[in-house]
Nucleic acid binder design. Sequence first.
DNA 1: CACTTGACCTGTCCGC
DNA 2: TGCGGACAGGTCAAGT
Length: 290
Amino acid sequence: MPELPEVETVKNGLARLLPGLVFTSIDYDWPKSFPNAASDVEAFLVGASVVEVKRRAKVLLIELSSKYSLVIHLKMTGQLVYRGEQNFGAGHPNDSLVGKLPDKSTRTIFEFTNGAKLFFNDQRKFGWIKLIPTAEVPNIDFFKKVGPEPLAADFTWQDLQGRLARRPNTSIKAAILDQSVIAGIGNIYADESLWAAKIHPATLVKNVSASKIKALHLAIHEVLELSIASGGSTDRNYVDAEGNKGSYLKFAKVFRRVGLPCPRCGTTIIKTKVAGRGTHICPKCQRLTK
DNA sequence: CACTTGACCTGTCCGC
DNA sequence: TGCGGACAGGTCAAGT
């Protein structure tokens, strides 16, 4: 589910809601979703307060006063939904969704001294939460190899070109989905960015010209920024930290638009498979060059 | 080594 | 309606 814009939106919500709150308890039913031992929870979570909420790539970081952090990956279907006085109560519009929690996909529940709760829901059980020392966060395997943030001011198109050059014989789509090349892009924004840059997703990286890479760099910026401004994409079950859906798919040009006209040339959008993933393209705008 | 394919899970949708 | 298979926004391990 969540790619960079969705995780950024969840982060922004949690950063408004959580700092200062103190954990009282945690409840979990699926060990893979929260692998820490109960002794870790007692020592480093219960009684600790939230200091700061951050995002790196598609990972959420909740820094605690205990010098430990909750490191969270939502993977395909993870949700992190807060329920407090702000968004819960008789007649509140969100009660239809937030009020039903916990539900059958709730894996972990965090409770705070003010009575608020944070629900980690994950239908497919791919996501995880780990409680680890804040100082060790940069050393986890994922962060050791993850690539740069695409929206960082100092991430230039030449940087993208240089990192793509490490994967010359794979498709451009597989390359930008590779989190060690560039962080945060998933299937939706890969398809949207490649359409905007007029690149066929199956084009081998070595056959993508410098001018196309420059266009792709710009496209990634524009697509991700529009999505963040829209609160992300809700295709199936993504919601933000207060249970609200994102509206980016209203602006999507190819993703989930099979059979509809390309907004640029009118050609019918088709769906194919590239890099093992469902892939949406305009067959006229995005030509496969050898 | 570079690259691709399965596995991890549950739920939904589509064709027979 | 029921049933089987394909598919779903991510990442690893294992395979070629």
